[in-house]
Amino acid sequence: MTKPPFSPDSDDSQPADERGFFAEQPAKRSGLGIQAAQQEEAHYHGHRDRLRTRYRDHGDTALADYEILELLLFRLIPRRDTKPIAKALLERFGTLAGVFAPSPTLLQEVKGIGESVAFDLKLISTVAHRTLKSELKGKQVLASWSSVIEYCHAAMAHETREQFRILFLDKRNALIADEVQQTGTVDHTPVYPREVVKRALELSATALILVHNHPSGDPTPSRADIDMTKMIIETAKPLGITVHDHIIIGKDGHASLKGLRLI
């Protein structure tokens, strides 16, 4: 049976690469359809030029978050008005940072975002995280505390499941490795102190910073968080491994168990 051609009005069909699909559309129209398409294209091209000019002349402070997102989407979806898509992304995910956090599957639930654009958004997110991480590599982490918090917040604040991350440090408190040890549910991550210490010994780490996120958004430590941290401290101490802190990341802030004098 011959497969029917893709219809742009169909709700249950989506091209493999939406960028190629949108690029082909004007060529398929005729008569008044071509004229209308040309007028629409001229409109959003003029809008794009104005946004680029504002950004070039005044920097990002001259643009709203949805306009910054538009500028990015210009590159990913070359032949479509991207303002509605940018606004839909922000409405769905709340903030500019939140747009880059979801899985590609969730991103594709927003109309206008297909597999290719979802992939590119996640790639951009990865570049941003790696950039922040590179600022920590080899540096004395305790002297760059604001960079540590910024990196952990970017990497974990918008995750929908709990992650338990460890920053492994050498005797100078420089970062050796950053690893996600466990990923759990929306409100629990299993953590095994012996496995934490075993990995620290494998990396020849002499100090640790524990980090995990609360998908609820509230970084307030639970009793279980405190007890688990104390167990890791007690397991690590006889082997000469120090736990400097346990940081809990929420959407709008963080909590330090050491700062709260809970460890």
Rank of each mutant, 00 (worst) to 15 (best):
T131A: 09
L132C: 15
L132P: 03
K133W: 13
S134M: 09
S134F: 08
E135C: 09
E135P: 07
K137F: 11
K137E: 14
G138A: 12
G138M: 08
K139H: 09
K139R: 14
Q140E: 08
Q140A: 12
V141L: 13
V141R: 06
V141A: 06
S144C: 09
S144L: 12
S147A: 08
V148T: 10
I149H: 00
I149E: 00
E150H: 10
E150V: 14
Y151N: 05
Y151R: 02
C152M: 07
H153G: 07
A154F: 09
A155R: 05
M156R: 06
M156I: 07
M156L: 15
A157T: 08
H158A: 02
E159Y: 01
E159T: 02
T160Y: 03
T160A: 09
I166M: 13
F168Y: 15
L169H: 10
D170M: 07
R172K: 10
R172Y: 12
R172I: 06
L175K: 04
I176T: 05
I176P: 02
I176D: 07
A177F: 05
A177C: 02
A177P: 00
D178H: 09
E179K: 13
E179M: 07
E179P: 01
V180P: 10
Q182T: 11
G184C: 12
G184Y: 01
T185L: 11
T185E: 02
V186L: 04
V186Y: 05
V186E: 04
D187I: 12
D187F: 14
D187G: 15
H188P: 00
H188W: 08
P190K: 07
V191Y: 02
Y192A: 13
Y192V: 15
R194Q: 15
E195T: 08
K198H: 13
R199P: 09
L201M: 15
E202Q: 14
L203P: 11
S204V: 06
T206R: 12
A207C: 13
A207T: 08
L208D: 13
I209Y: 04
L210I: 05
L210Q: 10
V211E: 15
V211W: 06
H212E: 01
H212Y: 11
H214D: 02
P215F: 00
S216E: 03
S216M: 04
S216Y: 02
D218R: 00
D218T: 05
P221A: 05
S222K: 03
S222I: 07
R223Y: 10
A224N: 11
A224Y: 06
A224V: 10
D225A: 15
I226Y: 01
I226E: 08
D227A: 12
M228A: 11
M228D: 12
M228R: 04
T229Q: 03
I232K: 03
I232R: 10
I232S: 05
E234S: 14
T235W: 13
A236W: 06
K237R: 15
P238C: 13
L239E: 12
I241C: 02
V243Y: 13
V243P: 01
H244S: 06
H244Q: 09
D245V: 01
I247K: 03
I248G: 03
I249W: 01
I249S: 01
G250Y: 04
H254C: 03
H254T: 07
S256M: 01
L257G: 05
L257I: 00
K258W: 01
L260F: 05
L260C: 02
L260E: 12
